[in-house]
């Protein structure tokens, strides 16, 4: 596989002019993305996260060649996205969670046939790839159903298959699990993990669902107000902002609030002291040490550890930068 980065962005900037209604000439310049630089290497899976309006979709659109940057450089799969739009379309697959690329009135299988022709797959290649996707995404039962009659979960699987039919080097997923139930999300994530393992596909994912990032993306980019706020691993992100883990203990008998344990904060007490929640900083103490301290005061029946909520982590990053 080529070692050319699948995404290379430097100094990327995009302004929009926001015009109040009825004032076509007067407008305010808004900077959606500002001096953004990063690289995604072949085979990487990157979670691209940030609040609404942080500039995620604007970046994605520039990577895909459907939005022209105001300034800066973009190379996607080594190509200039706007100028080389059609060549790039053969190397990337894009899923917009809120838009469909299927033919509404036709059976799912027919959409796949049209896309196979669009991407110049030969008959054998089309059969093999369609078969693989239908099996893995469990679409066999509704292949002959018109798209408009599918459930959201079924349609999203078909959308992902449609974007991956031509075996793109880079798959860009913009909110792919939006509106899906837990089981559908799970199935989609498992598919993407398999697809990466088998084909070495690079993945770039924007999402509000932190489960997506935790399961799929070893690397995280956090964007805040159009600039890069963090680039590294997910666990590193939690460490950077000092996110705490929470130990939840179920006790044998009602116990006084467990205050005063070193490097630990008592958060709450439920059921007359039968269940208590303790927050601790993993940099300063360990779950084992906290548990040992709790055991000296009361007998522990059961325990659970809550990992930091990524939305909370992002909020903390934002707060730290202001």
């Amino acid at each position: 596989m080529s070692r050319t980065p699948v995404v290379q962005v430097s100094g990327l900037t995009r302004d929009f002019v926001v015009r109040p209604r009825g004032h076509r000439l007067r407008g305010r310049r808004v900077r959606a993305v500002h001096d953004l630089s990063f690289t995604v290497r072949p085979g990487e899976a990157v979670g691209y996260i940030g609040a609404n309006g942080a500039g995620k979709s604007t970046t994605i659109k520039m990577l895909a060649g459907i939005l022209v940057p105001t300034a800066g450089e973009v190379r996607t799969c080594g190509l200039r996205p706007v100028q080389d739009r059609r060549a790039l379309a053969r190397r990337i697959g894009v899923v917009f969670g809120q838009r469909s690329q299927l033919w509404w009135d036709l059976p799912v299988a027919e959409s796949f046939r049209i896309l196979a022709a669009i991407h110049h797959l030969d008959a054998a290649g089309e059969r093999a790839r369609t078969g693989e996707l239908v099996d893995r995404l469990e679409m066999g039962a509704y292949l002959d159903t018109p798209v408009r009659q599918l459930s959201l979960g079924q349609r999203m699987r078909a959308e992902v298959a449609a974007a991956l039919l031509h075996s793109p080097r880079l798959v860009i997923l913009d909110e792919p699990t939006i509106g899906l139930d837990v089981l559908s999300k799970q199935r989609l994530r498992e598919f993407l993990i398999e697809e990466r393992r088998e084909h070495g596909t690079s993945l770039m994912l924007t999402t509000h669902d932190m489960g997506d990032v935790e399961r799929l993306c070893p690397r995280v980019l956090v964007i805040d107000d159009g600039t890069l706020a963090y680039d590294g691993t997910l666990s590193g992100l939690s460490r950077t902002v000092g996110a705490r883990r929470v130990l939840v203990v179920d006790l044998e008998r009602p116990t006084e609030p467990l205050t005063g344990i070193p490097s630990t904060e008592h958060l709450s007490t439920q059921a007359q002291g039968l269940q208590q929640r303790l927050a601790f900083d993993p940099e300063r103490t360990t779950a084992a040490a906290v548990l040992a301290a709790v055991s000296q005061r009361s007998e522990v029946r059961d325990l659970a550890i809550e990992e930091p909520d990524i939305e909370d982590v992002v909020r903390r990053i934002y707060a730290a930068r202001r």
């Binding site: 659109k61 895909a64 060649g65 459907i66 739009r85 059609r86 060549a87 379309a89 053969r90 990337i92 894009v94 917009f96 838009r99 469909s100 690329q101 669009i118 991407h119």
Partner: peptide, 12 residues
Amino acid sequence: TGDIAVDFLRPL
């Protein structure tokens, strides 16, 4: 509606 994005993402 912006669905034109999908059309521009095809090699056509």
